[in-house]
C-alpha cells in the first residue's frame, strides 16, 4: 500500500539494547500481566464452582432468568471483535495502515455492541429486581437465588469493566494509527492491546456457558 518511509519512526527507549529486546520485554510483560488477570478472575470462578456445587437446583432455576440468545449474540460479537483485532495487528505487520484502522474501528464497533446488549440485559434484571442480595427484590423458589445474581453481577460486571477499558485502549490505538505510528518495524502497542483483548474474549468464552447454558 504505502512504503514505510511515510510512517513515524519509533525510537527505542534508552535502557534497551535494541528494538527486539524492547518488543520481547513488552510482550513478556503483557503476558505476565495477563497471568495476573487470570488469577484476578480465578477467585470468582472458584466461588462460582463452590456455590454451583452446593446449590445445583438454584443455579438451574436462576439461569432461566438469563437469555441465552442475548448471551450467544454477545459471544459472537466478542469472537468477531477478536478476529478483527488480530487482523488489525497483521495489517500493521504488513504496513497496510488503512486496513489497520478499518479493523480497529470494526473491533470498536463490536465491543460497543457487546456493551449495548449487556445494558439491555442488565436493565431487564433491574426491572425484575434480580439483583445482588442487598438490592434483591425478585421472586424465586430457591432461597439462595440472590447469590447467583451476586455472582452474575460481580463476574459479568468485572468483565464488562474490562471491555470498557479495552474500548478506551482501542480508541487510543485508532488515534495513533491515524497518525501512522504503527508499521512493520513498530506495532508493540497494537500487539499488547490485542493480547489483552483476546484475554477479555477468553474470559467471556467461559462466562457464557457457565451462566447462560446450565442444562
Amino acid at each position: 500500500m504505502s512504503s514505510s518511509t511515510e510512517f513515524v519512526k519509533h525510537e527505542v527507549a534508552h535502557h534497551f539494547v535494541d528494538a527486539e529486546q524492547e518488543f520481547d520485554s513488552a510482550k513478556l510483560g503483557m503476558w505476565t500481566f495477563l497471568v495476573q488477570e487470570l488469577l484476578f478472575f480465578s477467585a470468582l470462578f472458584v466461588a462460582y464452582a463452590i456455590f454451583r456445587f452446593l446449590y445445583p437446583e438454584m443455579f438451574f432455576e436462576a439461569h432461566k432468568h438469563l437469555s441465552w440468545v442475548m448471551g450467544g449474540i454477545n459471544t459472537l460479537f466478542l469472537i468477531t471483535s477478536s478476529f478483527t483485532m488480530v487482523m488489525a495487528v497483521r495489517c500493521a505487520q504488513t504496513n497496510q495502515n488503512r486496513l489497520t484502522i478499518i479493523n480497529l474501528i470494526l473491533t470498536l464497533i463490536f465491543a460497543c455492541m457487546f456493551l449495548v446488549i449487556k445494558y439491555f440485559e442488565y436493565s431487564e434484571k433491574f426491572h425484575h429486581g434480580l439483583l445482588p442480595p442487598a438490592l434483591f427484590t425478585g421472586e424465586g423458589v430457591a432461597p439462595q437465588l440472590p447469590i447467583f445474581f451476586g455472582l452474575y453481577f460481580a463476574m459479568t460486571g468485572l468483565h464488562g469493566l474490562h471491555v470498557l477499558i479495552g474500548i478506551g485502549l482501542i480508541l487510543w490505538l485508532i488515534f495513533r494509527s491515524v497518525r501512522r505510528e504503527f508499521h512493520a518495524d513498530y506495532y508493540t502497542p497494537l500487539e499488547m492491546v490485542g493480547l489483552y483483548w483476546h484475554f477479555v474474549d477468553l474470559v467471556w468464552i467461559f462466562l457464557f456457558p457457565l451462566f447462560y447454558l446450565i442444562g
Binding site: 495476573q36 478472575f41 480465578s42 477467585a43 466461588a47 438490592l135 434483591f136 451476586g150 455472582l151 460481580a154
Partner: peptide, 24 residues
C-alpha cells in the same frame, strides 16, 4: 504476580458484600 490479584478480588468482593452484597 500470582497471589496478589487474589487479594485484590477478595477485597473487591468484601467491598461489594458490604455495599450491595454478593451473598457468598
Amino acid at each position: 504476580v500470582l497471589a496478589t490479584p487474589v487479594l485484590g478480588i477478595t477485597l473487591f468482593l468484601l467491598i461489594l458484600e458490604t455495599t450491595v452484597g454478593v451473598g457468598i
